[in-house]
Amino acid sequence: MKSSVITFPGSNCDRDIDVALKKFGFKNKMVWHTDAELPKSDLVVLPGGFSYGDYLRCGSMASKSKIMQSVINFANSGGMVMGICNGFQILVETGLVPGVLLRNKYLEFICKNVFVKVNDKKNKYFKNVDNEVLEFHIAHNEGNYFCTNDQLKEIEDNNQIAINYCDENGKIEDQFNPNGSLKNIAGIFNKEKNVLGMMPHPERMIDKSLSGEDGSLFFKNLINNLK
């Protein structure tokens, strides 16, 4: 399986996701944002970080960079595109996934482990994933998911919510919502579910001795689903 990770000026999780993808069997290529063509890929990842210093709105500048037109075309033709953290912010700015990510409700940068519940398994990202509840890491200032009422209805009708913030038992309640996201939304799909944007970082949970292994579950499962 071939993957590509796009590096923007200010990306800082690009090498982490590179390590994670390779660990679980992807042949990964790093792609610079000024490139016009995507290498042949089964998966494209927009990594976390602070592309363009979060100027204007997080992800807004990166969403207009040269490589993104190829990424958008790839996604629109059914290619798998995953945006993590700043990558999610870039995805919403391209319009590939609905909504926006506002500043965290209590105006603080949040850096901690959270639990998320898998809401939908009829997609290549979470199909056959062993656990319903996964422990991932979040580190963001703008992760407060918001969309219009019409968009929310559409998202819910199409089962586009991928993961919700919850407690360790999978209970989705306001008290387990770290950033004020609408309906505890931590990640969403596009309508066709080949594009996933999420705030949590599975690539930070791939080593038993350093963190947890729920990211390992996610990546092992993902590569199997793509085979």
């Binding site: 709105r57 807004s60 207009k64 700015e93 909504g99 926006v100 918001f146 969309c147 968009q151």
Partner: peptide
């Protein structure tokens, strides 16, 4: 196209 995000 850039300066505003019309969702919000």
């Amino acid at each position: 196209k850039l300066l505003a995000n019309l969702v919000i």
